[in-house]
Nucleic acid binder design. Sequence first.
DNA 1: ACTCCACAGGAATAACCGGGCG
DNA 2: CGCCCGGTTATTCCTGTGGAGT
Length: 405
Amino acid sequence: MSSNNDIDNIFEKAASGKALVKSRHTLTIDYVPEKLPFRDAETTTLAQALSTILKGSRPSNLLLFGKPGTGKTAVVKNVVERLKKKTDEFGIDVKVPIVNAKLTNSAYKVLFEIAEHMGINKEEKKQVHFTGLSMGEATDRILQYVQKKKLHVILVIDEIDSLVDRNGDDILYSFTRANERMAAGGFISLIGISNSLTFKDKLDPRVRSSLSEEETVFNPYTVDQLRQILAERARIAFNEGAIADAAINLCAAMGGREHGDARKAIDLLRVAAELAERERASKVDEKHVRAAQEKIEKDTSYEILKNATTHTKFVVLAITKSKSGNTGDVYSVYSSLCKQAEQEPLTQRRVTQIISELDQLGLVATDIINQGRYGRSQKIKMTVPLTTVAEALKEDSTFATLIDG
DNA sequence: ACTCCACAGGAATAACCGGGCG
DNA sequence: CGCCCGGTTATTCCTGTGGAGT
């Protein structure tokens, strides 16, 4: 990792005469600093809870709440890393699988990931493959393995709310239940990380009480705290004088606009640095941060549109071409586009569903309007610049000819 | 006060895919 | 081999609704 960085830096220096970034990976989300400013209390609580494992007994299950970018995952990773050092030192065997339920976008894959982490697939005949088994069978195999090997497991599920939203709490139920039944020797502690504060309401009461033996809420950072975090990070990441204070302040302000989101602020910092380096600037300043903001927005929507299914692309194109933006109008434009491309149009029900998916992704804004006698409908608008849409769709040959006109 | 448009959006269900089980 | 699994996309059928027109 670090040698890659060194090589990067060599090239950077050769290209620009002077590199701005000293250590690129400290500006990515994967980087976990040794000290997390303003999170001492949370870190201590977590460490305290997990420390019982050093005495060989089961730590309480734990729920962490907080908006995105409030340091939940970072605190967990930080504590886990330090715990591992201790357990290695004392020769205690502890497994700590960390799974992100959102990236791993299905309940079954979550189980598969856990199994991978614990090494079941390498050691056991009864593996947990990435598909094919029933959920119950997969859970059983994991639990049996834990019991057989008398493992001590701390299972971290990041973005646990998205798991429950999609698949309910069945998996959590089996894990929490299993603990109660498990014979002496093995155990599983659950650490759930949730973005949603109302997450608990969606759980079965039994799961709820078991899962939240302890809980901690992470409050958003204030803009001033963000500023200090960024300044500290910049000190490690950038070369002397390579970044203006004003740029840091602006990143902090932008990250704090909705709620103190450190991840967003650090992303801004990284992209701003990339832009500055690309144009051979001697310093990262405010205009790079503003450009970074635009680039991030554009890149994410571009990426989503490019990888969308054909019909989603048709729908997007129909929205841009529709005069009124009403559902009915969009649908008829969509239908005629499909006919032009000699494809069967989908039903209107499906199209409204696609539109609401686009809405959730933030590519589209919808507004329900009532026109009395003339019914009720949604008013649909793209929130993405038309040029971005055109660029993304152009790559698909079926759309090349449809885009203008 | 009532009607009725033009949809919204929930529920059930099917078709299909990649794969495992015995 | 036939059947089962979960996941995704799509269809079918459905009930619900704010307010302009009458």
